[in-house]
Each structure stands twice: as structure tokens, then as C-alpha cells.
Amino acid sequence: MINSKLLQTVRGFIADNFLFRAENEALGDDQSLLDSGIVDSTGVLEIIAFLEQTYEISIADSEIVPENLDSVGRIADYVERKRAA
């Protein structure tokens, strides 16, 4: 079970930086940020910088893949795995 505070923090960052307020209401945990056009490659770099600073983790280039960073749920799950390691 993913930490709800972590989901909320990640969703808040994405909403504040990439969405209009109305779109935030519909952002699901599993919605693809890339396929939906919410985030582009530059946005992914902004998310990475936010995660590294906020959660004091280091994200390797090899970990910058959709499986880790393409939705709010995947990002939260990835951060939990990194923090547990």
C-alpha cells in the first residue's frame, strides 16, 4: 500500500507545476503523465529534481523510465522503493 501522504505530495507538485486547477481534479494515480501530455521530457527532469531534493534520494539515469516515473502512483511506488533500499 502506497503512503497516501506521498501520493498527495507528488500529486500536489504535478498539479502546481503542470496542470490547470480543473485538470487536477481528474488526475488519477495510474494516469500516464507522458501519454496524457501533462509532462514532457523537460517536465520529467523537473520531477526528478523535486524527488531528489524532497526525499533525499538519488535517481540514476538507468532508472529514468516510464515504469518508475509515468504516473503519480508509479512515482510514489518508486520513491518508497528507493527510500527502503
Score class of each variant (00 low, 15 high):
Asp70Asn: 15
Gly73Leu: 04
Glu80Cys: 00
Ser36Met: 07
Val39Pro: 01
Ile75Ala: 05
Glu25Gly: 09
Asn68Ala: 11
Tyr55Ser: 10
Ala85Phe: 03
Ala15Val: 07
Gln31Arg: 13
Glu56Met: 10
Gly28Pro: 04
Phe18Tyr: 10
Asp29Thr: 11
Leu7Asn: 08
Glu46Gln: 14
Ile14His: 02
Ile47Gln: 02
Asp29Asn: 13
Ile64His: 02
Thr54Asn: 14
Leu33Tyr: 05
Lys5His: 11
Asp61Ala: 15
Ile59Gly: 11
Leu27Lys: 12
Pro66Ile: 03
Leu33Gly: 07
Leu34His: 04
Val44Arg: 01
Val39Met: 11
Val65Met: 05
Phe20His: 11
Gln53Val: 05
Leu69Cys: 03
Val79His: 02
Asp16Val: 00
Gln31Trp: 00
Tyr78Met: 12
Gly37Leu: 03
Val79Pro: 01
Leu19Ile: 09
Arg74Glu: 09
Tyr78Arg: 07
Asp77Ser: 15
Asp35Val: 04
Glu52Ala: 06
Gln8Ser: 14
Ala22Arg: 09
Val44Leu: 15
Glu67Ile: 08
Met1His: 05
Glu56Ile: 04
Ala85Tyr: 03
Lys82Cys: 14
Phe18Gly: 09
Ile47Asn: 01
Gly28Tyr: 01
Leu7Thr: 10
Ala84Val: 09
Asn17Gly: 06
Leu69Phe: 10
Glu46Thr: 06
Asn17Ile: 03
Ser41Ala: 10
Gln31Cys: 06
Arg83Ile: 13
Gly12Leu: 05
Glu63Met: 10
Glu52Cys: 06
Ala60Ser: 14
Ser36Asn: 10
Val39Glu: 03
Gly73Tyr: 02
Arg83Gly: 11
Ala76Asn: 03
Gly28Leu: 11
Phe18His: 08
Ser71Met: 05
Ser62Cys: 03
Glu63Asn: 11
Ser41Trp: 01
Asn17Trp: 02
Lys5Arg: 12
Phe18Trp: 08
Ser71Asp: 05
Glu23Lys: 12
Thr42Trp: 02
Phe18Leu: 10
Ala49Leu: 12
Asn68Cys: 14
Val79Gly: 01
Glu25Pro: 00
Gly43Cys: 08
Ser41Lys: 01
Glu23His: 10
Gly12Gln: 14
Gln8Gly: 05
Leu34Gln: 09
Glu25Trp: 03
Ser4Phe: 00
Glu52Met: 05
Ala26Cys: 04
Ile57Met: 07
Ala22Gln: 12
Ser71Ala: 08
Gly28Val: 02
Ile75Thr: 10
Gln53Met: 06
Arg83Thr: 14
Ile38Pro: 06
Ser71His: 05
Arg21Phe: 08
Ile38Gln: 08
Asp16Leu: 07
Ile47Trp: 02
Lys82Gln: 15
Gly37Asp: 06
Ile75Tyr: 02
Lys5Ala: 12
Leu7Phe: 02
Arg74Phe: 01
Ile38Tyr: 08
Glu23Met: 11
Asp61Leu: 13
Phe13Val: 11
Val72Leu: 07
Leu7Met: 10
Ile14Asp: 00
Lys5Leu: 12
Ile38Ala: 06
Asp16Ile: 00
Met1Ile: 02
Ala26Gly: 07
Gln31Gly: 00
Thr54Phe: 07
Leu34Asn: 04
Leu34Lys: 10
Ser58Ala: 14
Asp16Glu: 15
Ala84Met: 13
Ile64Pro: 04
Val39Cys: 05
